[in-house]
Design a binder for these strands. Structure first.
Length: 502
DNA sequence: CACCCGGAAGGTTA
DNA sequence: CTAACCTTCCGGGT
């Protein structure tokens, strides 16, 4: 049952993409959590320890293999000791156990084990199982992933991912509690800005980044995401390469995270340090180098970005901003992907202009798939995800960039959002007064900023704009979509946007 | 046809 | 039980 909320970590799919999830972690812990400090390593660790002789397809395992796997598994994820006597069976039998069976036999590790097995099955070379997926994503050629390698490679991936996830994972849960997040001072412009403002600063107009990111190409396939998913739990695989990830059960990750809190903590610390270092680089370089990094990492690890840095929004120098939600909320999820230091998700979503908060969903189906994984709604598709995005219009978290397909603009930076306890407040507040609506220039009063104030914040916050910058970039967004009804009209002002992002 | 837009109803979770 | 936050459907517009 109940698996914790999942936070996936990005790596899941090594394929090229990996989920962003668990972003929080990312944000928080800058580097990779993995135990090893080395970026690449999370996987490595795992790998090292994991019995390499195991077949990628767990159904092929012998009884001894099962034992070896379990030992490795409990150790790797720091799970409670698994009574091997309860697993005197071969891989095929193991794979036939239900989640509850596994939970009974391995208290405290049932979900994870189940999910891990499902994951492995899914990716197994010939996996008959996943109905939906004829070909496994993992296997499928993703440009990014290159992983020729050993037979094992596949398995390694998965596992890596898991472990990775685990490590990172974490925390989380809280959608509700955003307040905590920003580590330091939430709303200060500074802090807040870390994301935004700073970010702004940091993030240059990175059109480059965004565009660059767009490599993708893979999208085409992604489309399928639309609804198939027949089996919820197991995940249908995503057809496309890109999102191999999709297949991965978020829950598993979540569970894992739980378990690995300890690890995370440790990792976090390490990460923090690293993060600091990275931040600096990252920004500037990010844009330019991201790609390189990505490629490198991916190629090397295949997907694993072990190093994800949690920081997400790292400001240039600032502390990582965490979102308290860990990517559980859509806006947070998107922010995390967008701010992934390694730009691992640039094929799915990228900033068009970070300063103004304008971003483009490069691969709608692929992004939807990732979101679906994150939420464990495998039938997620762009249509549905976009509906959720549209709900953000009314709370002024987002607005559509007119004329640009798949382009949206964040009206508030993550810090603000986090600081706001209840987005609902925002919603209720229609953007401020009527005038605002009309007036395009909502630029608002700076003073307030949001958040804090209780209710008000809703209102005030409404202003939108990434206020990050002191300057007026803000300006424009105005339209903000405040209330749909009223304002809708005004919205046209988009022009601003245009120039803004472009 | 693919987007995009929101209303309506239902689900999950804290 | 409630509210938030979607998820799922859907008709309509561009």
């Amino acid at each position: 049952m109940k698996v914790p909320p999942l936070n996936l970590t990005p790596d899941i799919n090594r394929v090229g993409m990996t989920l962003p999830f668990s972003p929080d972690l990312l944000w928080r812990y800058p580097l990779s959590l993995p135990q090893s400090a080395s970026p690449s390593s999370p996987m490595l660790d795992v790998k090292n320890q994991m019995p390499t002789h195991l077949a990628a397809d767990p159904r092929m395992w012998s009884r001894d293999d099962v034992t070896a796997f379990l030992r490795w598994f409990e150790r790797e994820f720091e799970l409670p000791t698994i009574e091997l006597s309860k697993f005197c069976m071969n891989g095929k039998a193991l794979c036939m156990l239900t989640k509850s069976d596994l939970a009974d036999r391995a208290p405290g590790a049932g979900d994870i084990l189940h999910n891990t097995l499902q994951f492995l099955l899914r990716d197994a070379p010939q996996v008959p199982q996943s109905p939906l997926t004829p070909h496994h994503p993992l296997l499928s050629p993703s440009p990014l992933t290159t992983s020729p390698g050993q037979p094992w490679s596949i398995m390694n991936h998965d596992i890596h991912n898991f472990s990775h996830l685990l490590h990172q994972g974490g925390s989380v849960t809280l959608s509700p509690a955003p307040s905590e997040q920003s580590g330091g001072s939430p709303r200060h412009p500074d802090t807040a800005s870390s994301t935004s403002s700073t970010s702004t600063a940091a993030y240059h107009h990175s059109s480059a980044a965004s565009t660059g990111s767009a490599h993708s190409g893979s999208q085409s396939d992604s489309e399928d995401s639309t609804r198939d998913s027949s089996s919820p739990q197991r995940s249908p695989l995503p057809p496309n390469n890109v999102s191999a990830v999709s297949a991965f059960p978020a829950h598993a990750l979540a569970s894992l995270k739980h378990i690995t809190d300890c690890q995370r903590a440790a990792a976090a610390a390490a990460a923090a340090a690293a993060a600091a270092a990275q931040n600096v680089n990252s920004h500037q370089d990010n844009l330019q180098q991201h790609q390189h990094h990505q490629l490198q990492h991916q190629h090397q690890h295949q997907s694993q970005p072990p190093s994800l840095q949690p920081q997400g929004p790292i400001g240039p120098n600032e502390e990582p901003v965490e979102t308290g939600t860990n990517g559980r909320l859509l806006w947070d999820f998107l922010q995390q992907l967008l701010n992934d230091p390694q730009q691992r998700y640039s094929r799915h979503i990228a900033w068009k202009n970070r300063d103004t908060g304008v971003f483009k969903i490069v691969d709608p189906p692929g992004l939807a798939r990732l979101w679906g994984i994150q939420k464990n709604h495998l039938s997620m598709n762009y249509d549905k995800m976009s509906r959720a995005l549209r709900y953000y219009y009314r709370v002024n978290i987002l607005r559509k960039v007119q004329g640009e397909r798949h382009c949206y603009q964040f009206l508030r930076n993550p810090s603000e959002l986090k600081s706001i306890k209840n987005i609902s407040m925002l919603r209720s507040t229609p953007l401020q007064s009527p005038r605002s609506k009309d007036t395009i220039p909502i630029v608002q009063p700076a003073p307030m900023e949001e958040e804090e104030g209780p209710t008000d914040l809703s209102m005030s916050s409404i202003h939108h704009q990434y206020h990050a910058s002191p300057a007026p970039m803000e300006t424009q967004p105005q339209n903000l979509t405040c209330e749909p009804h009223n304002l809708s009209v005004t919205i046209k002002t988009e022009e601003y946007l245009e120039h803004s992002y472009e």
